[in-house]
Design a protein around this nucleic acid. Structure first.
Lengths: 239, 239
DNA sequence: GTTGCCGCGTGACAGGCGTCACGCCGCCGC
DNA sequence: GCGGCGGCGTGACGCCTGTCACGCGGCAAC
């Protein structure tokens, strides 16, 4: 099916082939049918802001395809990237459930398909479909554990190089492509954004990557990083 | 009723007077009855370890009275206090729901009453009582939002004094007793533990508190802190 | 009393990293 | 071509804060 942003659009959750691998969408046919009835599917270009920290919750977004960054900002303009969301994640669920302002902002990093569900519809959906409620609890548990890992990393790391090392290792596990020479990862973020992920500055990220290169730990080619000596990196990370 | 640790024990959730104010426990009579049937009530002395980070999930603990600290530790022995849990909170829910290891450790800070529910019982309970599942989702949402606040504080703060200031202000909101001279808070933690809450060292906490005293922002008398100039503190905190 | 331990206060010192500043490169639009 | 811009590389500098070290006071055990 042709579509504006060159990604395959999926209008029907029941027929969606991705649903089996995706945590939230894997539920009973009855629930899926209801979901199909209350959801609004949209395609968003890169850089679309889905919701903003502090805004009253309009509802939840289910990420079907694409990537979304969740951020939080200080009053002085410093930004922290809390998480990069992957397909299958539900965004804004906690705020929607509690009726409290969104605690983070969400922005697409690439053209993405999302299903929006209005707050009232979502709450009614959870109340009437036990398995959907259970899935939501699982999603929230996942999110909570991910947040805990983030807290660990931010609060216990001894140095910035440790945090950067940890981030690189996580990316290896998540998207790493193992080659004879080492693990290759595509970093689709700027140094600025990498810095925002570990709570530091662009300059420090640049310097640390140079240091890693100098030590022969990795090689950088454009937007891909080739990790040559993963054990070296793991030795750095003690969290 | 007399009890070992001088706190009033409540054996019956249905009759528990606290349930109205406490998020998790406020559910339908049918669910409460089931809860009463599957829970194990115990009193724990100060310093009891309920579960340890990395351990396979045995089940959840509902904190009836007392206080519990949730911590995470680095492989090198550094400890971060992630949260101080208050009565009404469910501990270990995310790990129990996902069947993954506990992501934090839990230890009582004072004699505390907790209800334990075994994993299988808890999962069955959520599956059969829609309102309990909904309450759990709410609890998890709360926990997630609290974790986000922690991430903000750890990741966006410019300095340690900002983090300490933020912590003091939070305590003012939570337990602060407003007096003509200022807001009084009881800090039942050592400097070491305060340091572990904001990811710094004991010495720095001591020094910062001295600095705050010198500036006339607060007074320390034993374990109580009297915040004299709250606005001054708020000016420090820009997160 | 005295011994030991724990929590707190403080000084000295080094170094990591945030900040500012500048230059380079590649890309896009006109 | 050329100007502008966004992303990256790097140097200089200074401060914050982690680390080590030591002393003091209170408290419990004996």
């Amino acid at each position: 099916m042709p579509s504006p942003y060159n990604i395959e659009i999926q209008n029907n959750c029941t027929a969606c082939s991705r649903s089996r691998e995706q945590l939230f969408c894997d539920m009973s046919p009855a629930a899926m049918q209801t979901l199909d009835a209350i959801k609004f599917t949209s395609l968003y270009p890169k850089g679309s802001v889905l919701f903003v920290e502090g805004e009253e919750p309009r509802g939840v977004f289910i990420l079907c395809s694409g990537r979304v960054k969740l951020t939080t900002s200080s009053s002085e303009g410093r930004t922290l990237i809390v998480k990069l969301a992957e397909p299958g994640e539900v965004l804004g669920a906690s705020a929607t459930i509690l009726g409290r302002p969104y605690e983070v902002s969400a922005e697409t990093l690439e053209p993405s398909q999302l299903n929006f569900i209005k707050r009232d519809d979502f709450l009614r959906f959870l109340g009437t479909h036990a398995d959907a409620c259970m899935h939501t609890a699982q999603q929230l548990s996942e999110k909570y554990q991910a947040a805990q890992r983030e807290i660990r990393s931010l609060g216990l790391a001894q140095s910035t190089s440790e945090k950067l090392g940890k981030l690189l290792l996580e990316w290896c596990d998540l998207h790493g492509e193992v080659t004879p020479k080492g693990t290759r990862i595509k970093v689709l973020l700027t140094h600025e954004e990498v810095a925002q992920m570990i709570g530091t500055t662009r300059e420090t990220v640049t310097r640390l990557l140079s240091e890693f290169k100098r030590k022969g730990i990795l090689e950088v080619k454009g937007s891909t990083i080739l990790i040559l000596r993963k054990p070296e990196l793991e030795k750095l990370v003690t969290i």
